[in-house]
C-alpha cells in the first residue's frame, strides 16, 4: 500500500511542478494546491498505513495508528487553505490592477 501511495505522490508532485512552471497565474495557484495534496499524503504514508486502529482512546487497551503525522497534516491542511485563498485573491487583484494573468507580462522593468 505504501509503495503505491508513494508512486501516486510522485505523480502529483510532477504535475504540480509542471503547473508551477506555467505562465498563467491560475495554473501556478493550482500547482501549489496540488503540491499540498501530495505533501499531505506523503506525510501520512511516512507514519505507516493501516497499522492499529483510529487514534481515539477506547475502554479496551489496543494499538493505535500513528497520531503525530495526523496532527501535523491537520495543521498543514488549514495553512495551505489559507495560502491558497490568499493566492486567489492576489491573482484577482493583480488582474484588476494590470489587466493580465500572464506572468511573462508581469515581469518587472529591465533594470531593478
Amino acid at each position: 500500500m505504501e509503495t503505491i501511495i508513494i508512486l501516486l505522490v510522485g505523480v502529483l508532485v510532477s504535475v504540480a511542478t509542471y503547473l508551477l512552471l506555467s505562465k498563467n497565474v491560475i495554473r501556478v495557484v493550482l500547482g501549489t494546491a496540488l503540491l499540498s495534496h501530495a505533501v499531505h499524503l506523503l506525510l501520512l504514508t511516512m507514519g505507516g498505513l493501516k497499522r492499529g486502529s483510529v487514534p481515539i482512546l477506547g475502554d479496551q487497551p489496543e494499538t493505535y495508528t500513528d497520531a503525530l503525522p495526523q496532527a501535523l497534516i491537520l495543521t498543514a491542511i488549514v495553512i495551505s487553505f489559507a495560502v491558497t485563498a490568499f493566492f486567489l485573491v492576489l491573482v484577482f487583484r493583480t488582474y484588476q490592477q494590470t489587466n493580465t494573468d500572464n506572468l511573462h507580462e508581469l515581469k518587472g522593468a529591465d533594470n531593478e
Binding site: L44, T65, L74
Partner: peptide, 10 residues
C-alpha cells in the same frame, strides 16, 4: 484515503 487510513479528523 484519510478515512481508509484511520484519520477521521483529517
Amino acid at each position: 484515503f484519510f478515512v481508509l487510513f484511520r484519520a477521521p479528523d483529517l
